[in-house]
Amino acid sequence: MTAQLTHTYKRWSRLFVPALVLQLIAWWLGIFWVGTDKDQGDVYRIIFVHVPVAWCAFMWIILAAGFAVFGFVKKKSFEEMDRSAHAAINLGTVFSALALATGSIWGRPTWGVWWDWDPRLTSTLVMFLVCCAYHVLRSFTPDIQSRRNSGQIVAILAAVNVPIVYFSVNIWRSLHQPQTFVRRGGSASSDIGLVLFANLIAMILLTLVLYKMRRTAIAAQESLEAAREGR
C-alpha cells in the first residue's frame, strides 16, 4: 500500500470525530436551543436532520453523475472518476434511505400516516431504488471495464431521472388530492433558518469526510483486486 493512500486515509479518518462533534453540536441546537413551532409543536425538530440528509443525498447523486461525465470526457481519469462515482453513489444510497426513514418518522405525527405520495419523498424513493440497482449491477458484472462503464452510465441516468420523476409526481399528485402538508402562511423564524443552515453545513462536512474515507477504502479494495488479477 503506498504511503499516499495510507496518509490520505489516516488524515480523513482523523477528521471524522471532529466532524461528528460539529454535527452533534448542530443537533443540540436543533433539539434544545431553538424554540417550539406553534403549528407542529416539538416534532418539527426532525426538520434539522431530515432536510440536511435529503439535500446531501441529492448532492452526492448529482456529484456522482458529474464524476461519471468527467470520466467519459477525460479518458485518462476514467478509473479514478469511477471510484469517485462509486463512493458518491454509496453515500447517496445511504442518505436517501435515511431521508426516507426520517421523512416517514416526521410524517407519522404530522400527517398521521407513515407514507404519503409526496413528490419529494417519491422522487427520493425512486432515486434510492436506482442507487440500489447501481450496486446490484456492479456486483453482477464480473469484468472490471464493463463494470466501470455500466456504473458510470447508470450514475448519469440516475441523476437525470430525479427531476423528471419529481415533475411527473408533482402533476400526478395535484390531480388526485390536494397537498396534505400545507406551508404555513408566515415565513419561518430566522432562528430556525439559522439552525437549519448550521445543520446543513455540518452534515455536508461530515459527508465529505465519509466520502473521502469510502473513496480511499474503494481504492484499496480495487488495488488488491488488480494485484490479484495481475492487471
Binding site: 461528528l20 454535527q23 443537533w27 433539539i31 409543536g41 416539538d42 416534532v43 425538530r45 426532525i46 436532520v49 431530515h50 440528509v53 445511504v94 434511505a97 435515511l98 426513514a101 426520517t102 418518522i105 416526521w106 407519522r108 405525527p109 461530515l206 465519509l210
Partner: peptide
C-alpha cells in the same frame, strides 16, 4: 414527540 425525534436523530447517527 420525543420518541419520534430520538428515532430520527438516532437512526441517522447510528447509520453514520
Amino acid at each position: 414527540w420525543f420518541f419520534y425525534v430520538i428515532a430520527a436523530y438516532g437512526s441517522v447517527a447510528a447509520s453514520i
